[in-house]
Design a protein around this nucleic acid. Structure first.
Lengths: 224, 224
DNA sequence: CGCTAATGTGTACGATGTACGCTGTCAACC
DNA sequence: GGTTGACAGCGTACATCGTACACATTAGCG
């Protein structure tokens, strides 16, 4: 077996923090964070479990790395555009990234060690708002408002008991089954008269809310 | 030992689902969800680990129970008031409940089996908005907007690397330490010129955002 | 070639969730 | 009062998890 100086494209290439983190993200994307164990990850990489620890300090450090990669996938606010367009684009990009990596939602802002991508992102957003003439107080308002909404929307969407394509009727049925009929008339009406209507997609609510927020911020900025 | 027919106030009272769930909530409030193991919980109740399984099917079922208790702590929208007041009160109540039970934030909307308190709550909110003349589409908008914001705010607040009382300067210092100075000028300016100012409390942002949302909804309702 | 540092392995330990079968207790009936 | 059956709690055991530690292998250098 000519296993010598295989600097290019050998099947069993060396491990690296990068490779470990990428694989972990792929794994979590597929099966959720709770399906990600050091052992399964190692197996997927064709390596003994403890080999991973040469590249990440521990599982927490691994997750820190994963989160930073995810953050780096979010578009920075485009500097050319006006603040509203830039913020709108960033929000949608963040929403998309979070729906690609649902496991990350609860972690993005947590991690005690933010990592460079995270800091750079925050810096860019604040810079964008500042450049548009927002004073510090309004920056704080805007940032907490927007990110609260974006993360919260991603969170509630992630937690919906059904996916966009699913048969909503069936899910609702099972959900309400154990309870006396007509105990929740408003909820039932809402589901049957709105949610189950063809064409309804909860994901579409996002931009409605986003524009409402941006309207509000714009008014505040121009007004008082 | 007179251990007979002690129907009132014996030190070692019987277990029950209720007692187990309550203890679990107290434990999670104190140490977070990851500190809650069946073993520690059992020990706290002065009981063997497996005893718990006579009252909850498994840990997931336990968490379902915990979540439903938490939901039941949220005030239902008061039926007497106008929609705006009712929604505002409910939002603040929900925010308070979530900050008492931070571990619940990622779970409230998830759990595949919603539980009665959850359903009743949703029903009441939808009912309140409907009664105020919101059509189904606007109900959907309003609900997703408000809950998104509330949960998201709670989530980002929970994940802040510091508590309201902490020395923000110190935390920020440690956070930015590993990076070249002045790499994140906007972020640094934001922290030093705003966040570190005495009297700043991120929690105060909540009502600002909430009122902005309610303004927006009111405008939509009256307008188009 | 041989040396040294970096990389991967094997084994082992303590914690976790929980299946299974035993025991002790208590309420309801004779 | 005595019997019995349901049910509450216990003890043991197992798979799986993160990861400490000592060892084997390899890579890159002189």
């Amino acid at each position: 077996m000519a296993t010598r100086t295989n600097s290019t494209a050998e099947p069993r290439s060396r491990l690296s923090r990068e490779r470990v983190v990428r694989a972990a993200i792929a794994h979590a994307d597929a099966g959720g964070l709770e399906a990600l164990s050091m052992r399964t990850l190692a197996e997927e990489l064709g390596v003994a479990p403890m080999a991973l620890y040469r590249h990440v300090a521990n599982k927490d450090d691994l997750v820190d790395g994963m989160v930073d990669v995810v953050v780096s996938e979010v578009d920075l606010p485009s500097s050319g555009a006006d603040w509203r367009t830039a913020m709108r684009r960033r929000a949608i990009s963040l929403r998309d990234v979070l729906s690609r990596h649902r496991w990350a939602i609860g972690l993005m802002e947590s991690r005690v060690n933010p990592g460079p991508a995270s800091l750079r992102h925050h810096d860019a957003v604040i810079g964008c708002l500042r450049a548009a003439g927002f004073d510090m107080e309004l920056v704080a308002h805007a940032y907490s408002l927007l990110d609260g909404y974006i993360y919260g929307f991603a969170l509630t969407k992630m937690n919906l008991p059904f996916e966009s394509g699913d048969n909503v009727a069936e899910v609702a049925q099972t959900m309400l089954e154990p309870f006396p009929m007509n105990e929740y008339p408003n909820l039932v009406a809402f589901i049957t008269e709105h949610v189950m209507k063809p064409g309804y997609d909860f994901g579409d609510e996002f931009e409605y809310g986003l524009d409402l927020l941006l309207d509000g911020l714009e008014r505040t900025r121009n007004g008082a």
